[in-house]
């Protein structure tokens, strides 16, 4: 992989329908944006706006879509080796120790044990889990498990790190601290990252640019540049500029989120007929 083959993720007019005929629903509607090398981009939108569908398309898990997702010049229609995915659900393997979890992608490639453990150790240290290599996931907290997943993805040195709400299940304080960790890693590796999230603070805290999506069908609402200085830490959440960005994006998002909420209420009302 030469240095000239610059990673450059392009989402070009992507459209995804589920079902066919008159019952088809459009989950992602003509989305276009891109991620430049070394950049941290977040996609934010209310629950149910098709963010996860977009994540699955970019990760190559949903091959059947219209438009193009390109890495370099390649159109993605299957998992691409230069994209590393981190999933929203807890995804460590409970039957493997931390080190064997992290070394897993290297094991698949047939890297000899000593070498893959060496490399895995490097990333375990990077996510701040030194000393836990021999532990099993059941002995770790939720935040630690998510860091194991991140290390497992980083170990294959993906050109693009693709994360789907990796901290959704964690409490706010842990989330902020893990945000610091991500900022640090991003700095250290100059890691091109695309984060899918519904969390405003998280998006502003971490991103260079934020892509705001509409609720159903998921369209591009607008792209906001976050001009907060780097290197950043979670302390940035106290600054005026931060508050300003959050307010700005919330005013965009509010309308979408409330229509999402109303939708959810109607569905619930329809589904939960009174019993008896």
């Amino acid at each position: 992989m030469s240095a000239s083959a610059e990673p450059y993720l392009v989402i070009d007019n992507v459209l995804k329908r589920f079902g066919s005929g008159p019952e088809a629903t459009v989950a992602v509607d003509h989305m276009s944006f891109d991620v430049k090398p070394g950049e941290f981009v977040s996609v934010i939108g209310p629950s149910g706006c098709g963010k996860s569908t977009l994540f699955n398309i970019i990760g190559g898990l949903l091959g059947d879509y219209e438009g193009e997702v390109r890495v370099g010049a390649e159109r993605i229609s299957g998992p691409h080796p230069s994209i590393g995915m981190v999933f929203q659900e807890e995804s460590t393997f409970p039957w493997r120790s931390v080190i064997d979890n992290v070394a897993f992608p290297l094991e698949l490639r047939g890297v000899p044990k000593a070498e893959r453990h060496d490399r895995a150790h490097h990333f375990i240290d990077m996510v701040g889990l030194s000393g836990f290599a021999k532990h099993y996931p059941s002995q770790l907290s939720g935040g630690m498990k998510q860091r194991v997943s991140i290390a497992r993805t980083l170990v294959s040195e993906p050109q693009i790190l693709l994360m789907d709400e990796p901290f959704a299940a964690l409490d706010e304080q842990t989330r902020l601290l893990l945000g610091d960790k991500i900022l640090q890693i991003q700095q250290q590796l100059n890691q091109t990252t695309l984060l899918i999230t519904h969390n405003l603070t998280e998006a502003v805290q971490l991103s260079d640019r934020i892509v705001v999506m509409t609720y159903r069908p998921g369209r591009l609402k607008r792209i906001v540049n976050i001009d907060l200085p780097r290197p950043r830490t979670s302390e940035v959440v106290g600054s005026d500029a931060f508050g300003h960005y959050v307010a700005e994006i919330w005013s965009d998002l509010r309308e979408e989120a409330s229509s999402g909420m109303m939708d959810a209420e109607t569905t619930a009302a329809r589904r939960n007929r009174p019993r008896g």
Partner: peptide, 8 residues
């Protein structure tokens, strides 16, 4: 899905 993303 982890397996699929790693092209196993």
């Amino acid at each position: 899905n982890v397996g699929r993303s790693l092209n196993m």
